[in-house]
Design a protein around this nucleic acid. Structure first.
Lengths: 254, 254
DNA sequence: GTTCGGTTTTGAACGCGTTCAAAATTTTAC
DNA sequence: GTAAAATTTTGAACGCGTTCAAAACCGAAC
């Protein structure tokens, strides 16, 4: 509906996104008006709405953007990291790196989380591909780790959940440079790798099974390998000027 | 600032809250306008704003209301329940009972969670007393349980965190009567009580210590016993027509 | 009963996010 | 090159949450 159909349109969209994000960073989400965004992008108000269905839709595009960036940074760091604890820590820290200056924008993502039916809920259908891509990073971080199959299967989603909690802590962390969150990540990841060998004891087999069954039953375990590589970029419509004809992913309405 | 100074005012405030909640239930939070709320309460628009600083402030009052109700229901049920697993399950289930028809209102509480500085964030300063009261219920549910001291200390907050996750699941649960969430609660609580005896092994001592240190360091462990009994009611200003002179808790502005 | 201080109530106004019909522009088809 | 179709852009308008100065109301003091 709103996605640019032409190459020039894609650039205009990128311009608006840039203008919006810089304003959000300067002044915060609530304090930035759509009129200002349009003005900075050199457009009229209505034009901005041609590219983004709403103010929060911009934030969702940012969400996809962040996720793509995290995948890139994490993969790069993981390529030279072998120790499991380090791999997990590096995955979390790169995420924080990406978000470091954008905590206020990140907070705006929570705006619609309370409404499951809302197309802009970051836990809802629309954002599902992004969420899966996010889980996948943890799946990759676990590559090479020797875990019981049942644990291996639920671990990525579990880590993703933990990472969500950490992001919430990060959002509220008022220590300089969010040093507390950094420390929390290190300690938590150390604890996780200490816990893993213990969990492998046969004694834990029934408990692990129970946990896996519980999460399965709740539909909480997602398999990130379902996602076609970089589908997330297209999923919300991202800035990069597209190369060829690639518009067939629009079944979304508001 | 906005809290009613007279007895009649307190009733008016209650009327507005009632009108608002019934409209929220009927139509949802976003679809209900302040003008409608005022109209149903038999007041002008401006009058409503004399009693509630904003639309979300109404939801925060509802949050306090819910919490008071949960304390009541949970205590009542706990009085006749001895088994730890049952005590935990009953605590969770009563919370779901209280919220069963108000999931949409509950969702509105998330509206400002992304802004740590906002006075209406349900994780922020303003709502802290309510949060502590909420944790306290889990503390009471654990009464009589034989846990290592370090576990005993962090358990209420940990359970509260788990309960938050369950509420999020509850919010998104579209199964009839949210049966899935009910099942999830039962399974999760069973798992917790299975896990506890294992955690008591001396083998786990260092891990428990590490976990406790981590949470302490992060400032995540709150002691619910700090809260003076029912302070939460006054903390946000609740409907009950006050009996005597009890207005001295107002240092809050927006 | 009148005055005075406060609380409560009003209604108009403001700025914002959003919508929409129509105009301008670009792309496509012949 | 021109006509038609599609896309992009415009600016006015709407409804909403919120603010505010002023009016109405109320109880206490004398």
């Amino acid at each position: 509906m709103f996605k640019s159909a032409t190459a020039k349109g894609a650039n205009t969209r990128a311009t608006i996104l840039e203008a919006a994000l810089s304003l959000f960073r300067e002044r915060g989400f609530d304090e930035t008006t759509m009129r200002e965004i349009a003005a900075r992008a050199g457009l009229s108000l209505g034009a901005a709405y041609h590219y983004f269905a709403s103010k929060e839709a911009i934030v969702l595009a940012y969400y996809a953007h962040i996720q793509a960036k995290h995948i890139e940074l994490a993969r790069q760091a993981l390529a030279t990291t072998t120790e499991l604890g380090d791999r997990l820590a590096v995955t979390m820290h790169t995420k924080l790196d990406v978000l470091a200056d954008d905590r206020r924008i990140m907070g705006a993502l929570l705006r619609f989380t309370g409404d499951p039916a809302h197309p802009l809920s970051f836990l809802g259908q629309t954002a599902r591909p992004i969420q899966l891509a996010s889980i996948r990073v943890f799946d990759e971080a676990l590559e090479g780790a020797s875990l019981p199959p049942d644990l291996r299967r639920i671990a990525p989603t579990a880590l993703w959940g933990l990472h969500m909690g950490i992001l919430l802590y990060f959002l509220y962390d008022d220590s300089p440079s969010q040093a507390r969150t950094r420390r929390l990540v290190d300690q938590a990841m150390t604890l996780v790798v200490r816990l893993l060998p213990v969990m492998r004891f046969p004694l834990f087999k029934p408990i692990r099974a129970r946990l896996a069954a519980l999460l399965d039953d709740a539909g909480l375990i997602l398999d990130p390998r379902d996602v076609p590589a970089m589908a997330l970029l297209d999923s919300v419509g991202i800035e990069q000027p597209q190369t060829d004809a690639e518009r067939a992913s629009s079944t979304d309405e508001s």
